[in-house]
Design a protein around this nucleic acid. Sequence first.
DNA 1: CTGAAAGCGCTTACAG
DNA 2: CTGAAAGCGCTTACAG
Lengths: 351, 351
Amino acid sequence: MRNLNMAVTIRDVARAAGCSFKTVSRVINGEPYVTDEMYARVKAAILKTGYIPNVSARRLVTKQTNMICVLITPGLYQQDSAGLGRVIDAGAEHGYTLFFQPYVPAQRRSRDQLFDLVAQHIMDGFIITPPCDTDDFAQDLITTYKTPLVQVDPVQAGPFPCVWGSHASGAQEITAHLIAAGHQRIAFLEGPPGLRASAERLAGYTRALQAHGLPVDPEWIEPGEFSFEGGSLAVQRLFNKARRPTAIFAGSDMAALGALFALQALEIRVPGQVSVCGFDDLPVAGMVYPGLSTVSLPAGELLAAALLLLVRLLQQAPELETQLTLPARLVLRGSTAPPPDVQREADSPVR
Amino acid sequence: MRNLNMAVTIRDVARAAGCSFKTVSRVINGEPYVTDEMYARVKAAILKTGYIPNVSARRLVTKQTNMICVLITPGLYQQDSAGLGRVIDAGAEHGYTLFFQPYVPAQRRSRDQLFDLVAQHIMDGFIITPPCDTDDFAQDLITTYKTPLVQVDPVQAGPFPCVWGSHASGAQEITAHLIAAGHQRIAFLEGPPGLRASAERLAGYTRALQAHGLPVDPEWIEPGEFSFEGGSLAVQRLFNKARRPTAIFAGSDMAALGALFALQALEIRVPGQVSVCGFDDLPVAGMVYPGLSTVSLPAGELLAAALLLLVRLLQQAPELETQLTLPARLVLRGSTAPPPDVQREADSPVR
DNA sequence: CTGAAAGCGCTTACAG
DNA sequence: CTGAAAGCGCTTACAG
């Protein structure tokens, strides 16, 4: 019975229900002052005609699109696709459709695309996920066009409503885990300078050492760039030194993967000779032998919190907390174990 | 000078240019019959007023959105983000904005989201990427609402315009590569039954063996489910047998990762004792020791071809080729080498 | 080559 | 509680 060629309008429904089209509009939008009987009649007419509102017409007059744009770097998707689904759900619950726009900081194409989206007011609001915020362009553009904006765990701090991840305490926890296993010589692979995550994760590492009365030795801190290459090169430098670490906290999973690769190339056993851990809990972390111990900053949960924040902003709700912090979680796999000397002690029959 | 509050309309521009708003409309849409002088005046007025067309108004009357939706599974993104950028570019060139919609086959939420998108005619056309086509719902819905649709390398064959990947010839090539290196006992980890890719990749493997006069032994063909778990379990079964393979062609990178993991757990050296290769060229392939040899089916290129096809369909161009096939590419890394016996021969001083 | 009219499908005030 | 009017910003015919 349904006409799928967009021919069904609010007027057709009104005719079927025997009322004015204004009444249909009221029912659609859940406005008050409609008798129950009228309401039921219109509902039935909508079903019978297969009516679907024309969003363009609605947008033209309301100046709202009920669409929210999430700026993402290609990586985020694979990290927590279940969480992502929940975010989409949450958006739908509040009447918003989410669009995921790939955005590469400072890239011409990304900027052009975003410009169109923003200038044409195609989106009611934006969520910026890391590292898209490293390019000021996005924030500037969005605020210039007076569009609400929420940031997720930005690389650089900004004056925007924001949901933060717990980099420092996550790093502190996993470092403490290594110390508890018996490690004393723990190397740290630093991230690129200028990134908040770099500083925070280093701070967590440092804090854990100090809390356990261990020295913070600059020799154990190597640049790792949060990248595969960086992690690999760092290991090559570390194992050229006279004193070698028994554990490496890589600061990021990518660097940890590089470290793991380099260690295997050097025929150093993990975790037998050296323990390795990372940060981020990328999906790969569980698939690389012997399983990478790491810290999870659940991207999906951060996103969901950001979405809720944005929805409240869009609803003009007087928002008390525009800065939230979500906890990190330890994910322990096979790449961390007691250091060789402790293992030997444990193996020996003499207590 | 620009008013960013959407107040600038076609009429404001007309006033600034000293013409009727219809003339402005002509200039915006590149219609003919406008004097060069008038054209320039309007262009200047647009710049001066900072006019940006209201897409909702335009859509209301044209019934077009100039938006194309790409149904993707979270994985695709990370596989070829550079290629993805090119696709977005190509879309923009033709006046289309691309939206990437996460879609999980048969999932309630995905279906609801898609229904809204389709029923409300928010998208001019759809591109379905694997494995989103495994759920007939998407295709059925989209065609029911008479929206153009192009498939990318579908898991199941359908009667739709389509861009195909070369699974069989890719599989044949990499198997031939193993044979050329001296392998004779090559195991194959099959994909899930019913998937076109499974059948095609197996066919390529078989064809390569036959082309080189090698027997196709069912004992060497193990289910691997195209998954990490599947690959891992398959290796455990294979290495419980009396006759062991010298090479494993995993049929998918995920299965190859699982195989690699299991081999390392068994302390079998790759490629020293066993060579391993995969299919897909996931980003992980280069980051897992010793680098996974695999076959690349460039997702970005397939997508770009699909986009072009869809654009032509939308432009009602009489399309000659609605079925394209794109070649696969061998990507050789450290996980494949000659088998142990050949290595020994090569090492020995006697030629 | 340029313009005045009509209308896309809806919502926002404003009457009854 | 219900409805007739006006208008959102644009394009599509149709006159000049």
